[in-house]
Design a binder for these strands. Structure first.
Lengths: 191, 191, 191, 191
DNA sequence: TATGAATGAGGATTCATTCAT
DNA sequence: CATGAATGAATCCTCATTCAT
């Protein structure tokens, strides 16, 4: 989220660019670095220096959301009830994707251009795995699932909510929650 | 699937174009009418006359798959066990999406350009609804779900399988089936 | 105006095409033979066989108007007053151009593709010359003008009226008349 | 006529483009931005940035001619003899159109894309009106004419000269002058 | 002769990226 | 480092004309 140490003016530009990137990513539109530059009132080359590709910008935009997600996972791991921890975290994951299109894009991407993003995603996958593993060990989660299934499943839920016609962001978010609840019912092992 | 009655040579071109369209759609790539023309060894304008937009071609390519899906739904409705009917049909839907990228694209599209596609999708939604309704009436499916939820959920499952790294088409298909089974477990009402 | 002797069905097509050509020419739009074919519900090649180029069609459309103009010129030559004859004929020429865009196009064209049009235009130029010559001989028309000036001047008046913003065809025609009257005042030799 | 303040290299390109535009406009041909780019040895997009449409380029090319015309009109208004002022100015207007095809195009266009051109044309129409009004007040010009008639009439004269077959630019210019003289004779009120 | 599908060059425009200032 | 003009390949689409049926 924070740029490498930069001169003060460079840092200001960096922030302006990321801010605009966030706005454009939210529209779901494919980001064009030229547009970003124009809207941010910054030279194109400045954008290109900071973010060589649109993906780099998207990943940067997504970083805070992903970090917060990782923190929530770690907090969930400290709780007593494995199932509750898993469930609450997955709700957070869906909420993050619904709120922040950049997070959804990065979660669904087959690979990443920033090494920091790659690390973050590995961390996230590990945390997903631990949460799932705890629940499986407790006998409350389908043992057939693997850590690598969790992120894709979350992307699927978010995608389903995007496909489903809905009125407004709130409606879409509500659908996403419903769909996640159905899925969780399938993940949970019935006693 | 079949073109409007055409002259023999026109029909040959139509088929060549659709064939190429199917190949390109399978790659998941965004179809470019110019490429289609080149690969099909046909003039650009010929492609444009038959299919004014890429969407028109994709929908045409998807039509047989969607029709076959509709037939399977109708057959499923004739079975005795509501749950089995629903389950088998949803497996067919996932299989169709995994096999035929055009089907996946059309199912996930917010709207369609061919009136025939629109009708087909309405028919499909209706059949989805009937299958779901029968299962709900029998007390074996979550009553909170609506007919309009089914297609999005299927798109979500297919998307999840696409996001999940896998080796080969077979691996992806297997993942899709696993994910659908998890979801079905969530849809099914437990006695 | 009349086609060369044709089979009955060919003649019917010829008329349909010319009729559509007249409508399209009236819009002032550059005629496209393909559009003509579509609107006339006739094959493109049929249009091309009858009229190899748009100009051929335009000239054909203009022919009746030009012929009627020639007749009016000949009638004007039989009158007693040279000036009245010239004046009335020029009014007719302006009216023809205002009414029939094809006439205006042919009159302003540097050359023609149909030999019949070429002949008609030569005849018209000759008649222009005779009317002008009579008036000049009577001392009522500027002797500096030549027969070859008349058609261009008429085109100029029609063009001026087209440039001048006006409401509706009637307004444009009225402007054209006013402009012609001013010009005639300049042509007329004052006693 | 002058570009907005530009970087030195940008200004050089701007001038090259306008220069080529002037040459192509003189041919009377419909300007194609792509040709302009090629002939000016400049990227297409460079032309498009400076002049989004051919009209914008034509209007820019015409601007110096129109400005000079406006200056001549203002000078003509300072003279003692209203009729001489009007006459000389109209000769200048015809000469400008004959010399510079872009001027003719802009004068005849129903509307303009550059606001500067619109303003220039309004100014010109006002000056036309003042010159005409002075002559009418002095009883030497047809009171039926309005300011809005002057530009169209000048376009008509230029058009007539273009229609009239002539040898070389000089011949065409001579015809235009003759036609204007005839028209002026019609405009002038005879004592 | 009539048809209309086929052609593919041509035209307009955009966009990601580089580079001179 | 910052700027934004320049680039030109790439894309999308139309149209006049031909030719197979």
């Amino acid at each position: 989220m924070a740029p490498a140490p930069l001169r003060k003016d460079a840092a200001r530009n960096w922030h302006k660019i990321v801010e605009v990137g966030r706005r454009l990513a939210d529209d779901g539109a494919r980001i064009q670095l030229n547009d970003v530059a124009r809207i941010a009132s910054v030279g194109v080359a400045t954008v290109y220096r900071h973010f060589p590709t649109p993906e780099a910008l998207v990943e940067t935009v997504a970083t805070p959301g992903l970090q917060s997600l990782a923190q929530q996972a770690e907090r969930a791991l400290t709780g007593d009830d494995p199932w509750t921890g898993l469930r609450d975290f997955l709700h957070a994951a869906i909420s993050a994707q619904t709120t922040d299109a950049a997070v959804a894009a990065v979660l669904a991407a087959p690979q990443h251009v920033l090494s920091s993003t790659t690390e973050l995603m590995q961390q996230l996958t590990r945390l997903f795995g631990e949460l799932l593993g705890r629940a499986q060990a407790a006998g409350t989660a389908d043992p057939a699932l693997t850590p690598a299934d969790m992120a894709p499943l979350m992307c699927g839920v978010a995608f389903a909510a995007k496909v489903r016609p809905a009125t407004g962001a709130a409606g879409r978010a509500a659908n996403a929650r419903r769909y996640l609840d159905v899925l969780l019912e399938g993940v949970r092992t019935k006693g």
